[in-house]
Design a binder for these strands. Sequence first.
DNA 1: AGAAAATGCGACTGCATAGTCATAATTGAC
DNA 2: GTCAATTATGACTATGCAGTCGCATTTTCT
Lengths: 213, 213
Amino acid sequence: MDDEPDPRIEGRASRRATKTRQRLLDAALYIFNTKGIEGCAIEDITESADVGKGTFYRHFMDKLDILRTLLDLAADDLILRMPPTDAPALSFEDRITQLFNAHATLLAERADLFLVFLQGQTMVATRSSSIPGLQPPFARYITALESRLKPVLPDPADVAGARQLAVAIGAIICGNITVGMSILSSKHDVINNLDLARQSLLVGTSQRLRCTV
Amino acid sequence: MDDEPDPRIEGRASRRATKTRQRLLDAALYIFNTKGIEGCAIEDITESADVGKGTFYRHFMDKLDILRTLLDLAADDLILRMPPTDAPALSFEDRITQLFNAHATLLAERADLFLVFLQGQTMVATRSSSIPGLQPPFARYITALESRLKPVLPDPADVAGARQLAVAIGAIICGNITVGMSILSSKHDVINNLDLARQSLLVGTSQRLRCTV
DNA sequence: AGAAAATGCGACTGCATAGTCATAATTGAC
DNA sequence: GTCAATTATGACTATGCAGTCGCATTTTCT
């Protein structure tokens, strides 16, 4: 009688769907890092997720669609690990360290997400034309870095400078991971190299930009 | 009578084969940058090279084989643009600049080669297990950087330091190109960012390593 | 309970493509 | 010119996979 459906709780069916969707995302992430994004078949994903093939198409349009979703999640995660935009502006040095840490913790805790992010980035960089709709997460990512850097620059109105620094940070970090992993360094070595890079960037950039460190 | 075959000149047949092979390499390079390495079919390559499909298999085992060849060529080209190992050791600053220039000229003159190199690097970094034999060119590349850095370090016996710096340079450059292109900067902007990165690296690293600049 | 809606399933169709092979064309030797 | 060796060809086979669709299962509503 009085067991009215609680509106805060979505129904069983919807929850089941959400769970299945999540299984597909997890499986895709795993397969993308194993056989590569383009080297894998939809059935590899559904097999790994232990769902029927048709189920995939109930949740995603095609492989590009689920990849887009994963790249968005990766960008979200990365951005969430950055200091909030309304955080008190610390020193230049502290802010840079915060931003490096955001990447380092994602690499340490969710290397799978980060590696798919890097794969997608290379896809966009080398042939954005043939893979529509994959670019936005990367733009969001750089913009997020930019907004966190602006407050600690000597001239907060220097938009171009903030963007250049944002690209430089993204480049150093993504580059260190890609190059480090490509010559088969351990994740530990990569994180260690990242710290050296952070120090160099700090010294080199603050001098160039005449920041107060 | 006396028109003996000149041993310096290989026969017509062999020259024809070499030319066909080169056509296939050129076509593969073009297609890899257009449809992506994994997104392209062998027939895309032979079609673009204007040769029969069977001809491809006369020259290469499979797609991985021709990719390996291209990555080797790219690494060769990059290394050839670096100062020779026996070049007189200049200052730390000059050597770093030489190494950056090696990359910058390859990007300017043979962007296609460089972009395939970056695609391959990401493939190896994110799933080296599933693509056997693609790693060596990248190891050679880092080793080449290393050997050019050792002579200008304060302690030329510091092997680990040379390697770290080599990775750092590779990372900054490859990262700047990948990230730059992924957010759709022009090649010109990328090269400009590279120069800023060079300056920062120079200041930051020479201070950290106590180099004489 | 019974009807309707939402979710999951996997056999099936059609197409794309890897790799082969018998044949053709070109080249080199004599 | 003739024969042997090298190189090129593309029709063909066999496989793998994307995407569909009718049906089964589960959930929701009344």
